[in-house]
Design a protein around this nucleic acid. Structure first.
Lengths: 240, 240
DNA sequence: CGTTAAATTGAGATCTTTCAACTACGGTGG
DNA sequence: CCACCGTAGTTGAAAGATCTCAATTTAACG
């Protein structure tokens, strides 16, 4: 368990051992932003770093876990399964986001978490959380904040990604992705991913993307990353 | 402030004075379920009961409040305003639900809250919350639970009310309402409300409802309440 | 009983899906 | 190094769903 193959690319989930909070680039925006790093680096606090290959299932809906994750790198989607077998993406998590907060409530996972890209994440056992909360009561507020952050994200999925014409939804998603990785900005999302987020078919997603390219609203497609005409996108995003 | 006209029906918001937690029917499922009622009935804890007329705005998006509400009676919708002026309902709150949790995080309201029906709710100042939390630390867990409850509701809006054909969405909404007021079950929701929840137009909502009635899947429409063929609805809810 | 808001309905325009075919790309193995 | 293969993306055409706009009916209420 502690020792897994660390460099084998065929292994979808790899325990990379003790996390190095001191040098973590996302610490400032992490769940533990308010806690001194040397506290976190105490060896008795077992926060391990994990790596997940693309498409890996990080946890299944219905399961319980005794830990939550802080995403350090990569994109994760939370999907929910409908009664009829289809699935819908309900959240898109990025570096700094927290995954599996249900654990803090001792509840089973509401959704399946799937790594979209290569993902690096820190595993935080809930016992560790509780220990830290006793020492730093503000953490409780942090937890509430994280939950609220998920709530805001969910609301965005309703109002921006599930409302209006397919084109408007695509535009809003692109704007959202752009705001996340500002400046040089990645496509990353396959048409199928986009479709699952926006509640449309992959064909429609493809058609709209192709059309945006033709209209030069999206350009410079190189190696999955590209730039876009923000003003135009914002205009399209207003359509209903 | 303390004394407003108590019986004037033209007043949309009425302070009914000190809440009577001891005899409250929804106490068992309220935010304070874990707290002895005599504690709540201490006169120094200012929990007041309010009454809101239908269509009253209980709070506006963007505003801050120093209190949250527990709904005792009636239905409340949370709506979000899109950039283009349209609005979308993102939550439907019922007796037992908590309203305005953002206050506990000192954040402005994410949505506007609007009473759909006549609403009775208890106003809980956050200072009161904090006082109680010190005495009953479990309340913190309750708060997290309430937030999670909202999250579950939001996810339902995404997967059930924003996915699939309009007919399937209507069916799922009816099933949801039925589960809430089990047995004798109310329509309550106008076509416009339904449309705003489901991301469709009022005309489509109307057409589908009319069709369901014609097919006898909904029947016995008397005074806004009616019964429905659950099995049939469940079947329709599976459509994509 | 008149007035007003809500619900219903029709018909055509528009959008999205469906299904099927085709293309581009990346990796594999010969 | 190139042919082959599988996946993901693209495209077309027709069917189906939803929206729009406008007219009509119904219900609610003073």
């Amino acid at each position: 368990m502690t020792t897994e193959l660390k460099t084998n690319k065929n292994i979808s989930k790899v325990n990379e051992g003790r996390a190095d909070c001191t040098h973590c680039s996302t610490h400032g925006q992490s769940l533990f932003a308010g806690i001194p790093v040397d506290e976190l680096d105490h060896t008795h606090i077992p926060i391990n770093s994990f790596s997940f290959a693309p498409h890996t299932v990080m946890h299944q809906a219905g399961e319980k876990d005794a830990a939550l994750f802080t995403i350090r790198q990569g994109k994760v989607k939370l999907v929910q399964h409908l009664a009829n077998g289809t699935t819908r993406t309900v959240r898109l998590l990025q570096p700094g986001d927290t995954l599996g907060l249900e654990a803090a409530l001792k509840l089973p996972h509401r959704h399946s978490a799937i790594a979209i890209t290569q993902v690096n994440a820190c595993r935080v056992p809930i016992e560790t959380m509780h220990t830290l909360i006793e020492k730093y009561p503000d953490l409780h507020q942090q937890l509430l904040g994280r939950l609220q952050q998920h709530l805001d994200a969910a609301d965005r999925f309703i109002t921006e990604f599930s409302t209006g014409s397919a084109e408007a939804r695509v535009a809003r998603l692109l704007l959202f992705l752009d705001r996340s990785n500002q400046g040089a900005y990645c496509d990353l999302l396959g048409r199928e991913e986009m479709a699952s987020i926006l509640g449309i078919t992959t064909e429609t997603a493809s058609r709209i993307m192709a059309n945006l390219k033709r209209r030069k609203i999206i350009s410079g497609i190189v190696n999955k990353s590209f730039s876009c005409d923000l003003a135009q996108l914002q205009l399209i995003a207003l359509d209903m």
